[in-house]
Simulated assay, not measured.
Amino acid sequence: MKPDTTSQIFWLKNRKPKEWRDKQNIEHDANIEINNAYANLTEDELRSLANYED
């Protein structure tokens, strides 16, 4: 008899659902710090930079 992949998948998902389920939830606990070089510029300064041409 030829192996039945669908049966194998079904068996794995029921035997160890945390390891073989389709959807995995991954939790992380980290802080991301973004350094924005433009945060302290005024609107006029930003417009000036946007219109700058080489």
Rank of each mutant, 00 (worst) to 15 (best):
K2Y: 10
K2R: 03
P3L: 04
P3W: 05
P3Y: 05
P3R: 07
P3V: 03
P3T: 06
P3A: 07
D4I: 01
D4A: 02
D4E: 14
D4T: 09
T5L: 13
T5I: 14
T5G: 03
T6G: 15
T6A: 14
T6S: 13
S7L: 11
Q8W: 13
I9G: 02
F10G: 03
W11N: 11
W11D: 12
W11V: 04
W11Y: 10
W11Q: 15
L12S: 10
L12Y: 03
K13Q: 14
K13M: 06
K13C: 04
N14Y: 02
N14T: 08
R15W: 10
R15E: 10
R15S: 13
K16S: 13
K16I: 02
K16E: 11
K16M: 09
K16C: 03
P17I: 01
E19N: 11
E19F: 06
E19M: 12
W20M: 03
W20R: 03
R21E: 12
R21I: 01
D22I: 06
D22H: 06
Q24W: 07
N25E: 13
I26G: 10
I26V: 15
I26E: 11
I26A: 13
E27H: 07
E27T: 14
H28S: 12
H28M: 12
H28I: 11
H28L: 15
H28E: 07
H28D: 04
D29A: 13
A30E: 04
N31F: 02
N31V: 08
N31D: 07
N31W: 10
I32W: 07
I32C: 07
E33I: 07
I34A: 14
N35C: 00
N35M: 05
N35H: 07
N35P: 00
N36K: 14
A37M: 12
A37Y: 05
A37I: 13
Y38Q: 04
Y38L: 15
A39Q: 15
A39P: 01
A39D: 15
A39V: 08
N40Q: 09
N40C: 07
N40F: 02
L41V: 14
L41W: 03
L41C: 09
L41T: 09
L41D: 05
T42Y: 06
D44P: 00
D44Y: 04
E45T: 09
E45S: 02
E45K: 11
E45H: 05
L46N: 04
R47D: 10
R47V: 09
R47A: 09
R47E: 10
R47L: 13
S48I: 03
S48Y: 06
S48F: 03
S48Q: 10
S48T: 14
L49C: 03
L49K: 13
A50V: 05
A50N: 06
N51S: 15
N51K: 04
Y52A: 09
Y52R: 08
E53D: 12
E53I: 11
D54Q: 07
D54P: 01
D54E: 04
